[in-house]
């Protein structure tokens, strides 16, 4: 066989491409279930870490089955709301949103694509509300979850993830627990232009250097682009959820304050 003839070249190349495509399709199908299980458990651990049920490392160690079980035990409600903050529909308590689904929502929130936004809201049995955020970092997508106290304003915790931010710098949004802890006890100012800000050079501090309780936290040193991207993502998404949170029936002021005080006291 003349390995240099045109016919041979074309047939051979086509054959190789077909074989490779078949192998990949087969492997992809067979492994899909396991991969989706891993992604789901990971997303759930992210939400529960934000809601302060444990640290990400704890959930990593527990394994997929335990994580799913713990979530089922603790989740109370899951539903979507529209851009006016009105509830659209409940969805299956086992469903979570993958980053690619958040990406689609992001196009709508940013106004780049037409359509009615269907924003997911997750509420745990202890009345903690968790909502997702999504945006662009320096090298790729960044996303995460913000957990709110029952008062619908004070932040209980946050957790973030990323596709490809710089290891040791931008990746701190995921790896640095201290950064995530800065969100605790701050609040989201739903009426403001920028609902929440991550400030380069530091957020305003008290005279003694301690953090003022407001809607700003410090950016990560050396990771300005990632911090800015995250700030945008958080602010834009929380702005989209503003009608929902502002429309919540105000729970008794004392009950809300007590809940916050309890959390602060626990930490001391």
């Amino acid at each position: 066989m003349n390995t240099n003839s045109n016919a041979y070249t074309i047939i051979y190349t086509t054959a190789i491409v077909v074989v490779v495509a078949a192998v990949l399709a087969f492997v992809s199908q067979s492994l899909k279930g396991k991969q989706e299980a891993n992604e789901k458990a990971d997303t759930i651990s992210q939400m529960m870490t934000a809601a302060q049920f444990g640290s990400k490392a704890d959930f990593q160690a527990k394994g997929n089955t335990a994580v799913l079980a713990e979530y089922a035990e603790n989740i109370a409600e899951a539903f979507t709301v529209n851009s006016k903050g009105q509830k659209i529909a409940d969805f299956d308590l086992g469903k979570v949103y993958s980053p690619s689904e958040l990406k689609k929502l992001n196009y709508i929130i940013k106004g780049a694509q037409d359509g009615e936004a269907e924003l997911p809201v997750f509420i745990f049995k202890d009345s903690t509300t968790v909502v997702p955020v999504y945006g662009a970092g320096l090298w790729g997508a960044i996303w995460g979850y913000i957990a709110f106290e029952p008062d619908g304003k004070t932040i209980k915790g946050a957790y973030f993830d990323h596709e490809s931010e710089t290891a040791g710098l931008g990746s701190k949004i995921k790896d640095d627990v201290n950064f995530q802890n800065e969100f605790k006890n701050e609040y989201a100012d739903f009426g403001a232009e920028k609902v929440f800000e991550i400030v380069k050079g530091g957020s305003p501090k008290e005279a003694d250097g301690s953090e003022i309780i407001d809607n700003k936290i410090d950016a990560i040193t050396g990771a300005t682009m990632t911090s800015n991207g995250l700030s945008e993502a958080v602010s834009q998404w929380l702005k989209a959820y503003a009608p929902y949170f502002e429309g919540l029936a105000p729970i008794e002021e004392e009950v809300a304050e007590e809940a916050v005080e309890e959390t602060i006291a626990e930490e001391e």
Binding site: V23, L24, V27, S28, L31, K34, Q35, N38, E39, Q60
Partner: peptide
Amino acid sequence: VILVDQILKSFEATYA
């Protein structure tokens, strides 16, 4: 390369 990536995504231990 795609096979390696797919396999790593499937195991709990290597997913992260």
